[in-house]
Design a protein around this nucleic acid. Structure first.
Lengths: 340, 340
DNA sequence: TATTAACACGAAACCGTTTTCGTAACTTTT
DNA sequence: AAAAGTTACGAAAACGGTTTCGTGTTAATA
């Protein structure tokens, strides 16, 4: 057991002052070569490393960034997080992660805990409950205290900060138009009411595409599902009641559930019904047929979010740069569940 | 913009000493009720919160724990992490996460970065490369410095510390015996050489089951696949060459790939071939038929790991408790891919 | 009334760094 | 030989807290 060694320890052992040790280790030219060599050798031998906490206190920056996401067992968030971690790490930052679990209170508590010095900035995606309540005072207060925040994916207009979002409207439109281009007119949308803004945008894109192509909108072709339950029954009913040629699902779980149901009902994919999902996760890649899907490029998104945050944190400009909203372009990956 | 307020600020404004403020806020009875009230009111008004970094420095504990895992986009690790986060948070700890990306160097560098004061203890699962190299000096050094470590899932005998593992051997045996109980004798194992100890254990269980039931071991019935590629060709060949009644796969990706291939070849699941996978993830739940699988109870594992770590960190015993290895009992979830 | 106890607070040390500034001891210049 | 300039180092403050100990004032006791 050899406990951590401090500057003070070195100073005592070598009979010099703490400042001398500090300077020597930073190669200051105030210190003679002899003394420097002695100190460096000693430090190396005892594997001296400066204490991060002391440095944080002194420098008033922790080199930690806080990431708050609604859920970790979720492909999209997971990939975003990986992007954040990679970039942050490459810039010498550590990442403290908190899961809000879609709960407003947890989001608030976690952020307040971290905000008292533990981190220099936040990257977050709003919890479902926060979006429902439309209460962003916790974010505003942190921004007020000078703590930078970058919002991604589930964002809000109500807080002024940097953001990274997906072009949800456009990619939905593009997806629906892909269906239309292949001759489909009865196009369904399977969505959720869980995280509002992104599903809303996706619906908007769906509607736009219909409108632009003079296809009348049929309310019955929209199915709203609760999240993460077994929706077999609802989906079956939906397809029994309606004659459908193509389906856009706002996530990959709905998409594979849907595929499985309609295959069970005797339809062929994509000959009878085409499907496109969101999130190019493991489900999409290993379903049969393979699911055509909207790749959200989560890793890129995370990387960009981290880059924006670190830029702002390290910026020395006197006048702060205006807040930016960056848009990540999703891409439609055409696989076996659509006619291509 | 209202910047964070410190004890010093309060002291100055209220014309008392810093120590008085500190004591007042901690409700010390050294301070008169009057003064306490004044100080508390002021502190509340300005939303005073003690600075975590300063506390960490003073108390020489950060209330942060470091989690190092090989991969985050992986259902099992993700659930373990969720368990860690939940328990840690409930105990007032934050979690700093580092992804080793299966690389030895990253594992070492990340841990050293964190070890200089940023965290009080580690929870980690060894990277593939670390296991391959069999080099654990970084862990031993940290333990030497008095930093507690809890290893989970991918562990090693070579370091003396707390561990949490799955009963891989037993659950594999149980799975294979389930096949045998349903009349299968030609039982295949699809495995990986990527993370040694767990796949080795799973193979051991497989072998034990065969032996106990007097089924001769046929080397050809073991297929070793590289990770995460499209293994369709290898799997197809494997099933063409061998007559197989049941397959145990060491992860769910292999299992669904396998299912898809053999369905393509015209076999019925589970009538012709039964399948069991490892990891009760999203793939298993949404495949058709639904995959019978070994649930690893990752969340429980994470929670237990966190509990062991925090226990040790907070223990005030003079003589340290001996290291423990806890075993999580996996359970076989029987779904549509097996005859039940 | 003198002594002691209780009360209410402040000074200072400490956690581990960095950094500014001061200075003793030489060396160089005039 | 006196003045000025270097060199090589140490003291101390600062980051933001906690905590021990000392002390002046008032209240209780002898």
């Amino acid at each position: 057991m050899k406990p951590k060694i401090t500057l003070k320890d070195i100073a005592r052992e070598l009979d010099v002052s703490i400042s001398t040790v500090s300077k020597a280790l930073k190669n200051s030219k105030e210190i003679s070569k002899d003394t420097k060599d002695r100190i460096k050798a000693f430090a190396k031998f005892y594997n001296y490393r400066p204490n991060n906490i002391a440095l944080s206190l002194k420098n008033r920056r922790t080199k930690n960034i806080g990431v708050v996401i609604p859920d970790i067992v979720h492909h999209f968030f997971t990939t975003v997080f990986r992007g954040i971690e990679k970039y942050a790490n490459s810039m010498g930052y550590n990442v403290i992660i908190c899961i809000s679990d879609e709960s407003f209170d947890k989001e608030v508590i976690n952020m307040e805990m971290l905000a008292n010095g533990s981190i220099d900035g936040f990257i977050l995606s709003l919890s479902a409950e926060t979006q429902r309540k439309n209460d962003f005072t916790h974010l505003k207060e942190l921004l007020d205290q000078g703590i930078p925040i970058v919002l991604f994916d589930r964002v809000t207009q109500d807080v002024a900060c940097d953001k990274v979002v997906l072009n949800d409207v456009e990619i939905s439109r593009e997806s629906v138009e892909h269906f239309i281009g292949k001759g489909s007119e009865k196009i369904a949308l399977i969505t959720t009411d869980n995280y509002f803004n992104v599903s809303e945008s996706r619906k908007d894109g769906y509607l736009e595409a219909l409108k632009d192509n003079d296809i009348p909108f049929d309310e019955n072709l929209i199915l709203t599902l609760p999240h993460d339950l077994d929706n077999t029954k609802l989906i079956t009913e939906f397809f029994e009641k309606n004659e459908i040629e193509a389906v856009l699902c706002v996530n990959e779980i709905f998409a594979v559930q849907c595929m499985s149901v309609i295959q069970q009902m005797g339809f062929r994919i994509p000959e009878d019904i085409s499907i496109i999902g969101f999130t190019d996760g493991i489900l999409s890649r290993f379903s049969s047929p393979k699911l055509s899907t909207v790749a959200q490029h989560g890793e890129k998104m995370g990387e960009l979010a981290a880059k924006m945050l670190i830029n702002r944190m390290e910026s020395t400009e006197v006048v702060e740069e205006p807040f930016k909203t960056e848009i990540i372009n999703a891409t439609l990956i055409k696989r076996g569940s659509t006619i291509n």
